[in-house]
Simulated scan of single mutants.
Amino acid sequence: MQDKFNGELSGKIALVTGGTKGTGKAIAERLLEAGATVIITARNTPEENNEKLRFISADLSLPAGTQKVVKEILTRYGKLDILVNNLGSSETPGGGFAVLNDEDWEDTIRTNLLAPVRLDRGFLPQMIERKTGVVIHIASIQGRLPLYDSTLPYAAAKAGLINYSKSLSNEVSPKGVRVLTVSPGWIMTTSATRMMERIAASSNTTVEQATQGVMDALGGIPYGRPAQPEEVAELVGFLVSPRAGYLTGTEYVIDGGTIPTI
């Protein structure tokens, strides 16, 4: 498996949060292919078991969950070289600000902002001590292009994550740790595909028409389609590799041209 990437991550210990499905799963498999030892976390056991990926069950929206992951990894491996904060979700109802309560906001911020902050705090000291490490924050173009009708807390949390990531990089890059942000647009995960199928069935249209409808709601995707999880994973795989050794403090947007400004 290591031939394609010359084992460029051999000897590296990597953690990918939300790594059991979708983009997180693709990222975990990409790092594994490059030779890393990869740990994944999620609340639920992976639907597809990959014995080469080490799984830790944890609810990272809670302090106890992040503490569990940090303790287990550092106890077993003694270090973490690559942290990919991929976990993110939006489960708030549509309808704008008026339908959202404190619990909607707090749950979203805990998952999308505080979970990576806590994991960074847990793993950064040993990276700084060793003067090496890479932290990737998976944000979203909604940090710049919010969809207020249905994902207002998510967009606000991701904007906060982007700002935090830049500030953190300014602090720890001089100490040998690279911090980067990846902001994807719409990704056609298995969950997104199922959603398109539900929309198509309820509106008596085709999946292709449902997909086009979502792209239109985003203002269009010049590339003509959503991203595939593997395309985002390939970008992350490059960013954590030695080939990207001078890259830090930067946000990388991968959206097929969705954001209409420079």
Rank of each mutant, 00 (worst) to 15 (best):
W105V: 03
W105D: 10
E106R: 13
D107W: 02
T108Q: 09
I109G: 04
R110N: 15
N112P: 04
L113C: 05
L114A: 10
A115H: 03
V117G: 00
D120S: 13
D120Y: 08
F123I: 07
L124T: 08
P125H: 11
M127G: 02
I128G: 02
I128L: 13
R130V: 00
T132M: 07
I136P: 00
I136R: 04
I138P: 10
I138L: 14
R144C: 02
L145R: 13
L145D: 11
P146R: 03
T151L: 11
T151H: 12
T151R: 14
T151F: 03
A155N: 06
A157E: 04
A159G: 13
L161M: 11
I162H: 07
N163P: 00
S165Q: 01
S167W: 03
L168T: 08
S169K: 09
E171P: 00
V172N: 08
P174D: 08
P174Y: 09
P174S: 11
P174T: 09
K175L: 15
K175M: 12
G176D: 11
V179C: 05
T181N: 12
V182N: 01
S183F: 02
P184W: 04
T189E: 06
T189I: 02
T189K: 05
A192M: 12
R194I: 10
M195V: 05
